[in-house]
Design a protein around this nucleic acid. Structure first.
Length: 584
DNA sequence: GCCGTTTTCGGCCCGACTGTTTTCAGTCG
């Protein structure tokens, strides 16, 4: 398993304690940024520190000091600065920062003046009323803290993209019905297609914003109104999801959408760029900066340089268009995103799906009909191999009968769609495949996937997957890490190495579009793009509705800067057919 | 702590909302 998450926690802890002890805010931020970099890295940075420390130092945001700490962790298993910092304050204090409404200043007040040294003592002191009279802590603040604690008891943390998007779209439809909406969109990490979402952001322009804010406060399923102003409303749903609505005049909509889509880091870079150009960027527009004038440009009623659309703002900043999924400060201001960035409408083939032969819910013909309905020219049926007993995996005998059945259906559909006989074959612990080669050769197509031993060491996992990539009959490595979003970390092989080897062997690495998987993940896709290997985006459909998960896989691939030409699912029937045949 | 189209030193994005305050600090995104 990768050490990135463990290291990220260490840097986050360092940042928290520095923050609580009143250290330089920029130093705090620098540590937070390193934590974020570690969380989002596609490769194991501890491993990188071991093998190529110079490259570690080249990663933006990681300077000498942080690189040293990562190296220290690699050699000793800990970071002395973190140990010292944590020892300097009561163990339960940093956790107080997780409570909504409590930042470093209030936590410090609670701790040093109120004797609060943990969440438990906070609870007790709130209950016995002994916190009244602390500076800046009036009755409303204390009540808000109490409510936050109750909320934390029931919260589920970040939710999956596939859960959040339907809720957001439903709310947007509801707000549209409330009237007075000119333009409206989801924003934030949801619009950027991140695999998990903290809260749902909605931006709207409206002729009667007050009506819109009232509609959200009264929306079905609202359990609490958190914030309610003239331009901003935040509510919490009964399911514990927070929804923020921001309204602006229509002429400012582009600036607002840009701002609330983020990411924060992308916005900071845009504003720095604006500043250098003598401009000021905020959620109302891009303005000429006038340091001598009082107040904000929008307060002075100044005409913005650009504001109505996101496109106009990027253009005025001398930048190319940057799609929302790429706005992470991952080089999108320095390098132009691919002009043929992958899009759902480009997908013309499903290469990994299941039927009732193993654990799917539709027949062969049923799945083929679904593919035709989506305008695909090719579908490969890939039921589970024999080791997947719990998924009704096919014995060799059953596989042969299934192949015959697929061929019969294929003949019926031949003039409308290519129907191919494949299998999702388990990659065994030792890297061999679950059927002998002569059986695999009877199939048109092979997706090789890991399903077991998903806690193996990184180096072991790498060798196991490399063996599958080198197998001459394999087309795709399915969900290469086996991770489940928010639930199972899965394997952490050396993806860069796998991608280079896949490029050499003309094998595609899969982006499994199922919202539970999204595997490969965004940062891994970026490594595939850099290595130039083929990528497949498949839904791994087990029934009709699963085909609709494709956009989640597309979002993940876009976040990895994947272009059309590198994705086998976008190829023409003929070109795809040639690649498939080349493995036989 | 990080970084460089003015910089190896001296900066480091911008505004809404709330609560506790007489003009602003703290938090959040």
């Amino acid at each position: 398993m990768s050490k990135n998450m463990e290291l990220a926690r260490i840097f986050a802890e360092i940042a928290d304690v520095l923050d609580l002890t009143g250290a330089n805010a920029f130093k705090v931020n620098a540590n937070r940024k390193v934590a974020r970099t570690l969380e989002e890295a596609g490769e194991d940075l501890a491993e990188l520190a071991r093998t190529d420390p110079a490259r570690l130092r080249d990663i933006p945001g990681i300077g000498d000091s942080s690189a040293k700490k990562i190296l220290e962790f690699v050699t000793t298993g800990k970071v002395a600065e973190r140990e010292e910092l944590l020892a300097s304050i009561p163990a339960g204090v940093p956790a107080l920062l997780q409570i909504p409404g409590l930042g470093p200043k209030r936590v410090r007040t609670l701790w040093t003046e109120g004797g609060v040294d943990s969440v438990d003592t906070l609870r007790a002191k709130l209950a016995d009323g002994s916190l009244g009279g602390l500076p800046g802590m009036g009755p409303k603040t204390l009540k808000a803290i109490e409510e936050s604690l109750t909320f934390l008891d029931t919260t589920r943390g970040r939710i999956r993209l596939g859960e959040a998007l339907p809720v957001a779209l439903e709310l947007i439809a509801y707000l549209r019905n409330a009237g007075a909406v000119t333009r409206i969109s989801h924003a934030g990490s949801l619009r950027r297609g991140k695999e998990t979402i903290g809260d749902i952001d909605i931006v709207a322009s409206s002729t009667h914003p007050a009506a819109l804010h009232e509609a959200l406060r009264n929306a079905p399923g609202v359990s609490k109104v958190l914030v309610s102003g003239e331009t901003k409303t935040s509510i919490r749903t009964a399911h514990g999801m927070q929804v923020d609505l921001r309204t602006v005049a229509d002429a400012q909509y582009g600036a607002a959408l840009l701002y609330f889509t983020g990411s924060k880091e992308h916005n900071v870079r845009l504003r720095e760029r604006a500043q250098k150009m003598g401009l000021r960027l905020n959620e109302y527009g891009l303005f000429k900066e006038d340091a001598t004038a009082k107040g904000t440009p929008q307060e002075r009623g100044e005409q913005p340089v650009a504001a109505t659309t996101e496109e106009s703002i990027y253009e005025a900043l001398g930048l190319w268009w940057i799609p929302p999924e790429l706005r992470e400060d991952h080089g999108e201001l320095e390098n132009q995103p691919p002009k043929d960035l992958i899009d759902t409408k480009h997908i013309k083939a499903e290469l990994h799906c299941h039927t009732t032969a193993s654990d799917g819910t539709l027949s062969i013909a049923g799945m083929v009909d679904q593919a035709i309905a989506r305008g695909f020219h090719t579908i490969v049926l890939t039921d589970h191999s024999r080791s997947q007993a719990q998924a009704n995996g096919l014995s060799i005998e059953r596989l042969r009968a299934h192949i015959a059945e697929i061929r019969a259906v294929a003949a019926v559909y031949a003039d409308r769609i290519s129907v191919l006989a494949g299998s999702e074959v388990d990659i065994m612990v030792d890297g061999t495949l679950d059927y002998p080669d002569d059986v695999l050769a009877e199939l048109d197509f092979v997706v090789a996937s890991p399903h077991s031993a998903l806690r193996a060491e990184s180096a072991v996992a790498t060798e196991r997957l490399l063996a599958a990539i080198r197998h001459p009959l394999v087309h795709i490595i399915g969900h290469p890490t086996g991770r489940i979003v928010n639930a199972r970390e899965g394997l952490s092989p050396d993806i860069a190495l796998l991608a280079r080897e896949a490029a050499k062997h003309n094998v595609a690495l899969e982006v499994n579009a199922n919202t539970m998987r999204l595997d490969l993940r965004d940062s891994h896709v970026r490594m595939c793009v850099e290595a130039g290997c083929l990528v497949a985006i498949d839904t791994d459909a087990h029934g009709a509705g699963d085909f609709d998960q494709l956009p989640y896989g597309i979002a993940t691939a876009r976040r990895g800067w994947l272009g059309n030409s590198q994705c086998v699912n976008t190829w023409t029937r003929a070109k795809l057919g040639e690649w498939i045949a080349s493995k036989r």
